[in-house]
Computed example of a mutant assay.
Amino acid sequence: MIIIQLNQRQQKIIEIVKQNQPITSENIASMLNVTRATLRSDLAILTMTGILDARPKVGYFYTGISQINLLGNDIKEKQVGDIMGMPVVVKKDVSLYDVIVEMFLSDVGSIFIIDDEENLCGVVSRKDLLKATIGGLDINKMPIGMVMTRTPNVVTAETDESVILAARKIIEHEVDSIPVIETDKERNITKVVGRISKTNITKLFLEIVGE
């Protein structure tokens, strides 16, 4: 067992939250004279380890935990393929309506889009579908390929990638999950083989601390 060593900025964040809770990330960033984006990874670490608690539209709270024991080596050695979940994929010509139904039946925040050769070509989120719905589009006729975020603008992970790197991508790009891919060199396609999300990563932390 090792004790996670917090950096100076993380320690300052804890002190600010203690004295001003509840406090938003915008206010924390202002007090530290940095951008909100700069604090994303720090706040993610502090909430995932249980030192801070975050409540939507309220802000951050201090939980009373001053330090947390983690199996540091296990975290570093964990790969995306060890904890990824099953992906939810649809073809790019499927209608918006059918994708909306699939998303809520599957209870996921993002769906990955593939072409006829099963090649990853895009991703669509709940926010994308909401925008399309209130934008007056015919959701029964409009194919999902018209509103998806297209590759190469899709953030991905690979099975042998470290969980830490995948977590950093999720935080930095402000997404709930990313597709896990493998390249089929013979067919020259990028296949979606999994899905890694904030939930997968949080469960891993809980397993490691023995919850």
Rank of each mutant, 00 (worst) to 15 (best):
E117P: 06
V175E: 05
V147E: 05
A54S: 13
G85K: 04
S110H: 12
V17W: 02
P179A: 03
R40S: 11
A54R: 14
D53Q: 14
T47Y: 10
N153S: 15
L204H: 08
T149L: 14
I4H: 15
E161C: 05
I51Y: 04
I114Q: 13
N27G: 01
A44S: 10
A157D: 05
I14V: 09
S66M: 11
G85P: 04
T35R: 05
I196E: 01
R168P: 08
K169C: 10
V58K: 13
I201E: 04
A54G: 05
S106A: 15
I181Y: 01
Q21P: 03
S95M: 06
V147K: 06
I164H: 13
I196Q: 01
G135L: 00
E211H: 12
S66A: 11
H173F: 13
L130T: 04
P22G: 04
A37V: 10
A167Y: 13
I68V: 15
V88A: 01
F104D: 06
V88D: 00
D184L: 04
K198T: 04
I51E: 02
Q11V: 14
K185Q: 09
L96S: 02
T24M: 08
K191F: 07
Q8C: 07
G72A: 08
I178L: 12
I2G: 15
L46M: 10
S177C: 10
I201F: 07
T24S: 15
D93F: 12
T156I: 15
D138N: 14
I3S: 06
P56L: 02
D107E: 12
Q67A: 07
L46Y: 07
I164T: 15
V124R: 03
S106N: 09
V163Y: 10
I100T: 07
S95Y: 04
P179V: 07
M142A: 13
L130H: 03
V101F: 10
Q21G: 02
K169T: 08
I201M: 04
D53L: 11
V17T: 02
P152H: 05
G145I: 15
T199E: 12
S66L: 12
D98C: 03
A167K: 14
V123Q: 06
G64H: 09
L204D: 03
D128L: 04
L71I: 13
K18M: 01
S95W: 07
T24K: 11
A132H: 00
L71A: 12
T133P: 00
G85F: 09
K198D: 07
